[in-house]
């Protein structure tokens, strides 16, 4: 398998030989990622798909600096000084319940000590873009799951990072809201053209949003295949699905993914059997 590399100048993220192992209670070692290579060009919308447990979140957390690699390197080409390197939209509920929508969205900026007027403008803009302006003073418990997810997205975008990391940001949403938010995300992304690393289990979502899709192998996670998505931008979420290539790309990804999902299922079954054996030995 060859890694499509961009020219050195354009490479935003360069990953070589990345591995991550966890030691779980009982001394058992889990290899989440093994010998993982990847180049992400500046401004690319890259999406990771792969079976559950293949190490997608682990990879993103290492990119974010929340987890240290067991081996290998992650190199990030920094841009202008003063901007944060990355901001993450976390898997699951992650906005602060004790802050209003506004305070949540402004979090990164106020941590960095950005001037009040600038915070006001930026946060106002992204609350507007995510349709949350009316809820600026609302606390999260009064919001629907979809709205909370939008706050999380506004928080990451308002921080204006060089790289945006999004871990299944729409997975908890119903189909209609998901489609709407995908459209919103495309629109906001078109404004900024940030480098994005996005995780999803939805092949449709991956094809709709991305420039390039990486299919990961079952545990331990590796890059199994890369698929380029050639559609022009700006894209229209609904029209896209009528394009003749759309179905082909979806089929292509599915056939790559299917193998790995089956492998992951087999691994899980084996784990059950071996733990049962362990029971008999005891």
């Amino acid at each position: 398998m060859s890694i499509p590399t961009a020219t050195a100048v354009d490479t935003k993220i360069r990953i070589r030989g990345l591995s991550k192992t966890f030691t779980v209670p009982g001394g058992h070692v889990v290899t989440a990622l093994e010998d993982f290579d990847l180049d992400v060009p500046q401004g690319q919308f890259l999406t990771l798909v792969g079976p559950s447990g293949c190490g997608k979140t682990t990879f993103l957390r290492m990119l974010a600096g929340l987890e240290t690699p067991s081996a290998g390197t992650i190199e990030v080409n920094r841009g202008t000084a003063g901007r944060p390197e990355n901001s993450m939209v976390f898997q699951g509920d992650s906005i602060f319940p004790w802050m209003s929508v506004w305070q949540n969205a402004a979090y990164g900026l106020s941590v960095r000590g950005v001037a009040k007027a600038e915070i006001k403008e930026t946060v106002g803009h992204y609350l507007d873009a995510t349709g949350l302006t009316k809820f600026a003073d609302t606390f999260p418990h009064q919001l629907s799951g979809g709205m909370r997810q939008r706050v999380s997205i506004a928080r990451a975008f308002a921080n204006d990072p060089e790289i945006l990391l999004m871990d299944e940001p729409f997975s908890a949403l119903d189909e209609q809201n998901k489609t709407l938010l995908q459209a919103e995300l495309l629109r906001i992304w078109d404004e900024t053209r940030k480098t994005v690393v996005f995780i999803t289990h939805s092949v449709d979502e991956a094809v709709t949003l991305s420039d390039r899709i990486m299919v990961m192998s079952a545990q331990p996670g590796r890059a199994k295949a890369f698929i380029d998505v050639p559609f022009d931008r700006p894209r229209d979420v609904l029209q896209l699905r009528h394009q003749p290539e759309y179905g082909e790309i979806v089929y292509d990804i599915w056939s790559q993914l299917k193998e790995e999902v089956e492998k992951a299922k087999q691994q899980a079954d084996e784990r059950v059997i071996s733990s049962k054996r362990g029971l008999f030995r005891r």
């Binding site: 992650s94 602060f96 990164g108 941590v111």
Partner: peptide, 24 residues
């Protein structure tokens, strides 16, 4: 996850205390 968020957004000790630990 709230500590992870604080760290990801660059909060240092004092900020983590006032914005996460105490209100949480």
């Amino acid at each position: 996850i709230f500590y992870d968020v604080a760290e990801n957004f660059g909060a240092r000790r004092g900020r983590v205390f006032w914005s996460v630990a105490l209100p949480g």
